[in-house]
Simulated assay, not measured.
Amino acid sequence: MFQKTMGDRVMLLFFYCSAGIFALLCMLPLWIGLVASFTNELSLIRDGYGLWFNHFDTTAYKLIFTGTSTVYRAYGVTIFSSIAGVALTLILTSSFAYPLTVTSVKYRNKISLFAYITLIFSGGLVPTYIMTTKLLHMHNSIWVLIIPAALNGYNMFLMKNFFNTIPEALAESAKIDGATDIYIFYKIILPLSKPILATIGLFAALTYWNEWFRVLLFIDDSKLFSLQFLIIRLQQQSEFLNSSLSAGARAALGGLTIPTIGIKLATAMISIGPIILLYPFLQKYFIKGLTIGAVKG
């Protein structure tokens, strides 16, 4: 058995310490933002950002959550669209990518070319808006946040490259035993593709969770606002309210200062929480899916 020398141990310790320090540096901005979101606005303006709570204040969170169900409803819309969008993305992407790796499928190279063209060209904003509202009738519908983003060429090619790494002998031996193509796909190919499914799922989850532009274009009903779009609205409204209050109005309100900075940071903490909790469970699949799926094209 190989014995580690003193030099190996020192080098290993150096690598661990370097990785640990780098991880702490990456976490530092997040921690500073969390501390600032619980800091009094005047203290934050006067003293700046710090590493510990100074003049602890929860006004920003109270303004966001107290007396309104808007934030909770936006959370529900975002969670539903993310879960449904990830499921639809995995179904469509895997169903589209796998046939393009089967050599017996005709015109698979031409279909791949059409998919590649979508990575370079797009129809543009105006045709997309007209098609979505006039032809598909998805204006003010939650499905406009789910369906249009469910399939794209980048995810398809990434999954296609992963499927190419699976030996064709598995499918051929299953066909000899009488298995159909659908059975092979769902019972053999997909169980072996957990790394790439987790990778594409994480990509899709981030896309759906951070969606706000489609809400701006296609949603007028406040009950269908996503969390990210609501965050933008809250920040804009707080900045406008704080800048429009006169000195007399501030005096009448007891010198109230709208925590515009605190609201920005509080909404950021609220929005990134679930993604931070999700990523550690998918990290090993995420790294493996990227490395394996990128080797063979």
Rank of each mutant, 00 (worst) to 15 (best):
K106W: 11
Y107D: 05
Y107V: 03
K110E: 03
S112V: 11
S112H: 12
L113H: 15
Y116S: 14
Y116P: 09
I117Q: 12
I117N: 14
I117L: 15
T118P: 15
T118W: 10
L119A: 12
L119D: 09
F121N: 09
F121S: 11
G123F: 04
G123L: 03
G123D: 01
G124P: 15
G124C: 10
L125H: 12
V126R: 12
V126A: 08
Y129N: 06
Y129H: 10
I130R: 13
K134E: 05
K134S: 09
H137D: 07
H137I: 07
H139Y: 13
H139G: 09
H139E: 09
N140A: 02
S141R: 06
S141L: 00
I142N: 04
V144A: 06
V144G: 08
V144D: 02
L145I: 08
I147L: 13
P148K: 05
N152E: 10
N152L: 07
G153D: 05
M156N: 05
F157K: 08
L158W: 11
L158Q: 11
M159C: 04
K160S: 00
K160I: 00
N161E: 06
F162K: 04
N164H: 13
T165P: 11
I166F: 05
I166Q: 02
E168G: 06
E168M: 01
E168L: 02
A171R: 05
E172F: 10
E172P: 14
K175D: 01
K175M: 08
I176W: 10
I176L: 11
D177E: 11
D177K: 08
D177V: 08
G178K: 11
G178V: 11
A179S: 14
T180A: 07
T180L: 06
I182R: 08
I182Q: 04
I184Q: 00
F185V: 00
F185Q: 00
Y186E: 00
Y186K: 08
I189H: 04
I189S: 02
L190I: 07
L190D: 00
L190K: 01
P191E: 00
L192G: 02
L192Q: 03
L192E: 00
S193R: 03
S193L: 02
